[in-house]
Each structure stands twice: as structure tokens, then as C-alpha cells.
Write a protein that binds this DNA or RNA. Sequence first.
DNA 1: GCAAAAGTGTTTTCACTACACCCATGA
DNA 2: TCATGGGTGTAGTGAAAACACTTTTGC
Lengths: 237, 237
Amino acid sequence: MSVHDLHSNSSYLGHEKVLMAVDCIIFGFDLNEIKLLLFKRKVEPLKDSWSLIGSFVKKDQTLEESASLVLDEYTGLRDVFLEELKTFSKVDRDPGGRVISTAFFSLIRLDEISAKLVEDYDAKWFGLNEIPALVLDHSEMVEYAIEKIRIKVRRRPIGFELLPEKFTLPQIQVLYESIYQKELDTRNFRKKLLSFDILTRTDEKDKSSSKKGAYLYKFNKQKFDDFVAKGFNFELQ
Amino acid sequence: MSVHDLHSNSSYLGHEKVLMAVDCIIFGFDLNEIKLLLFKRKVEPLKDSWSLIGSFVKKDQTLEESASLVLDEYTGLRDVFLEELKTFSKVDRDPGGRVISTAFFSLIRLDEISAKLVEDYDAKWFGLNEIPALVLDHSEMVEYAIEKIRIKVRRRPIGFELLPEKFTLPQIQVLYESIYQKELDTRNFRKKLLSFDILTRTDEKDKSSSKKGAYLYKFNKQKFDDFVAKGFNFELQ
DNA sequence: GCAAAAGTGTTTTCACTACACCCATGA
DNA sequence: TCATGGGTGTAGTGAAAACACTTTTGC
């Protein structure tokens, strides 16, 4: 059969169909480090293995819709950052049949997702250095996503997605250090971050991690949007 | 049906299957500007419309394999730059049926593809500013690809993929100007490019575009690979 | 000899780096 | 009063930007 056949009739009869799925790679930040949300399988085969959460794509859904629904069902979150990563299509990637799966990655605010929901689904947050073996090719997906997030974070301020409404500069520094897996110079970090002029300092202090307390900041949505639209370089050291 | 069902049995019976396709966005550089290779449909419906070239994905192929085969068949090229762009899945994107298509983009050396092959397939090269309306959602794919190539070019030297074996500095400058759609300062461009130390000047000159003639350069594969491996910033103005 | 493209250097500006001490507070 | 984390400034370095003239040669 020639590739010409793709558009040679409008019924596309005789071509081989496949199952299409999505898998979600969900990152969160607990104010200490960046973490990945994994789910324990409750059914055979591979019962008790850790896995990404996913779903088959229905006839009336786009991939994005399907991934959104998964995210909503398992985290209760809507309208969160969700981006296509890559489509995985190895012929034998799934012993259950020919399944092609598009991996999505999501950045969520850990403070918005209920611990109960996570528990109910037998899910768990893992630090990037303690990720267990995963079913199918999910480890490959995660590896790819971590690489991607390290690149992405340099070109896009990810604060809105991962940080709570109010946060301290030490917290956001820890976030970046956790992604880069590298210590950053406090003075330079603060200088650069503040120079973007997208943060507004509140009068409140967070004293949960020091006696002196650190000022809480908010993102200035307006300036943040201008900043993103104008294009910028968020690289930090 | 719950998303739990994804791994609840190994037969995945009862789930809805779809047709999976790939489409190739092929860029080339003719020493004047960067161009896109489009194909004219020869069959109804939408006969004579311009289209990307694609194929359905067979049972025993990955997406990458499928895209490689398309590229090989239509350009005669193997082992060229080919990268997944995004998967397009609007429910009604194809009037012929539910087809999900992964777009790939490719950078090729125009001097390596025979004009005859292009003619045989009723294909044509288009400058980025003269791209016609395309079938299905192919215009969207192309738009996305152009955006992507502008970002990509900043982080990766694309010379090997697009330039012939020997090329002049004015030619590579025109390539970058054509991608950025912006004039670059010759002195700064040459200074930066040469500072990477990945080019070797030959003794030959190309006199096709001036009386004085411009020196022909080659990529130094060894240094180029070190350069890529080490990580770098190829941003130019 | 002149038109047309190729080739070349210097100065200024600005962002990144490195680096060490004082501050505020609760215990 | 002291231990702990929060907060600040400056000098040096290097890369990017701006900018204009000379060279070569076919006609």
C-alpha cells in the first residue's frame, strides 16, 4: 500500500486502527522539593507496580480533553498547566495490545490538591531522586519529562503553576535549586528575580522556617503577562 | 467507564480504536531563503489542494518509522533530521474518519533532493511568506512548526541539516535572516559564528553572487559535536 | 573606474559572577 | 546571648550591540 492512499478516498477503509491513550506526568512542589505524583496499580497484571495515571482516548475526545479529564478526576484540578510532551509508539510497548500513548506533563500547586484524594487513589508523591521503577515505558516518559522541565524552566517562569498564591523568596529559590539540582547564590538569585519586576512584596512574613521570618510575595499577574508576552530569558546561573 | 480501566485487563477489549497517521513538515534552504515542501493532491476530494505529505501508521511501525518511510519515499533521503512536533487530534479534523495525526518536522539539504523527484510527485517548494491554504488542519501544523523552528534554531546550530557541504558565510547569514525574518549585523554575526570554532575555511571561493567571491567553509564535524555535547547558546541578536 | 558584495575592529553597554557580613528573632 | 535563617551591595569580567570603511574584481 502506498502512502498515497491516505487521501485517496474519504472512508479510509482497510487501514489498521490502534488504541490511543494519554498518560499524565504530574509535578508538584511541596515548598521543599519538586515531586512527581505516581499511582499504585490495584489490578493484575503488574499489581502494586507504580505507574503514571492515564486513560484511553474516547471517540469524542481530543488528547488534551482526555488528559484534562484524567487530571480532574485524580487531582480535582481544572485549568492547570498541561502540555503535550511526546507520543510513545513502540510496537510492543504495552503487552495488552497495540496502544499508542501521548504523554502530557502538568505542573500543579501541591497546596491545592487534597491529601485525601491522593490517598484514596493509592497515589504518592516522589522526589525526583527516589522515583521507583514504573510499568510499561512510563520510566522513559518520566525521564523525558524531567529533561524537558529543566529546559522549560529556563525560558518560562513557572511560579504561577507550582507556587501557592503567597510565597517567600527562599521558597522560590529552593524550587529552582530542586529543579536544577544545584545550589544557587542567594544574592544573585534575588537580584535577578526581583529585576524582572513581576513580584509584589506583601507586608506579611512567613515564620515557619526561621525566627526572623521571610517576606511573602505575590505574583503581579499584569506584569507577569507582559513579561511572558515580550519574551525573556529566565536562565538563572 | 473509569480511567481505571486502562490497566485492568490485558486485552483492552471494548475500547474505541482510531486511525493513526503521520504528517511531515519538510523544510529546506535554497541558499536564498528557507522553504517548505508541499504536495498537490491528485485525488478527490480536495483535488489540487496543497497538503503536507503523510501516511497511516501500520501495525508494525512506530510513528518515527512511519515518518521516516514517508520522507524516504518522497525525497529519497534517509537519516535526515526528523523530530516529533505535536499530535493533532481534533475530533472532526478529518472528514474521512477519526484520524489522529502526529506531525513531524524535518530539515533537509535542498541540494540533496532531486528536482525530478519533487516534480514527479507534483510537489513544490514555498517560501514561508507564500504558503497557500492547506487541507485539513495542515496549516495549523505548519504554523506551529515555523514557530518551533524559530525557537529551535536559537538552541541548536542547524547548519548540518540545511546547508550543503560547502557554504559561504553570507549564505549562512541569509539562512538565519530568513528564519528570524530579520536583518543581522554582518560583523557581529561573523564574529559570533567564527568564535564557536566549528567552521573550517577552505581555499575555494564561491563567485556565484559577487565578483570578489566569498570563501567557502565546511563544518568541522569533530568540533561541532563537542560544541553540541557541551551545551551552548546559539542565539544571534 | 565603478558598482556590488565581501570582509574587517573598536568602543560602549549591560548582564552575570564572585564574594562576606549584618539583621531580626525565638528559644 | 546565641543560633538560625533572611536579607543586602560592590567590583570585576566578558559577551553583545552599535557602528563605517576598505578590499576585490568583473564589467
